[in-house]
Write a protein that binds this DNA or RNA. Structure first.
Lengths: 159, 159
DNA sequence: TCTGAAAATGGACCTTT
DNA sequence: AAAGGTCCATTTTCAGA
């Protein structure tokens, strides 16, 4: 599953995770590689799916989505088709940024971004109260987004 | 706080959140604007901080970080400097992708990506057990990353 | 790795509202 | 003034030798 990477790849991944707009010439300088080599490697990393995609990260508070909420959900039944239906519902909801199906005290952890509490209340109606398979849920309101990202560590190793 | 946006901006934000590599000419076709106008608007959105940054999204399982874990943390004291110290520690830890300081049953929610359970165990030592201000924590292991992103909804409105 | 063509970005300048 | 469009120079990407 894990693709073969060398330290050049890892350094490149580190850089483009931080900032995907750095020109390949500059990346070449930073990792000590020619522009063409950087170009080939980035293409390969994208083709292999190591780089899933490139994305603009939008500041939610600037587009009037100032509230981040974490919701934990416990289900009634773990029957596969019921779970799949829930996963699809959660995945489709634009306000749900992340949904993890977890083992432990809860079954789902949702990270949501909303305009205000009213919108969240409305979403709990749609997603939780009107869903027979939701046994209970608990809301955690974020007071501070201390760290928000999808960055994956890439550890430089001795080769 | 929320910047003035029109529907052109919103459509652009939708597009570049999904895929930041679409050329500005193509974006122009999609939103019905000249390339130059797209260019100006994207620059403005970045300057104003609406677009926080551009990032390559790496698939964690491809770089041998197959495990996602959500950890809830309760603190002993909410004294400001102790909290700040914790926030800094969490923010610095490369395996912590996200850290929210929350109100509710817990004080922090952490979303972590790790190589294996051993690494997580080691991290709990460093972050939780060896920190006097951690009263208790609870671990939720993700079995499925149903939806993972930082996308913010941008609602097209009548103007 | 180097070179060069093709593509994309971004500024200058003029026009429209 | 604020924003759009066209045109053009510069920068960047990316393939072939």
């Amino acid at each position: 599953m894990a693709t073969q990477l060398d330290n050049f790849d890892r350094k490149l991944l580190m850089e483009v995770q931080r900032d995907a707009q750095i020109p390949q010439t500059e990346l070449g300088v930073r990792v000590n590689l020619s522009t063409a080599a950087v170009n080939r490697r980035l293409r390969r990393l994208a083709d292999e799916g190591v780089i899933d995609r490139y994305s603009a990260i939008v500041a939610p508070e600037k587009v009037d989505y100032p509230l981040t909420i974490v919701a934990n959900v416990e289900v009634e039944s773990e029957q596969i088709d019921l779970l799949d239906a829930m996963k699809r519902t959660f995945a489709q909801c634009p306000q749900i940024q992340q949904c993890y199906y977890v083992a432990g005290e809860w079954d789902f952890v949702l990270v949501m971004t909303v305009r205000n509490m009213d919108q969240y209340t409305e979403l709990t109606r749609q997603l939780f109260f009107s869903n027979n398979n939701v046994k209970r849920f608990k809301t955690l309101v974020s007071m501070s987004r201390v760290k928000v990202g999808l960055g994956v560590p890439v550890d430089i190793v001795d080769e």
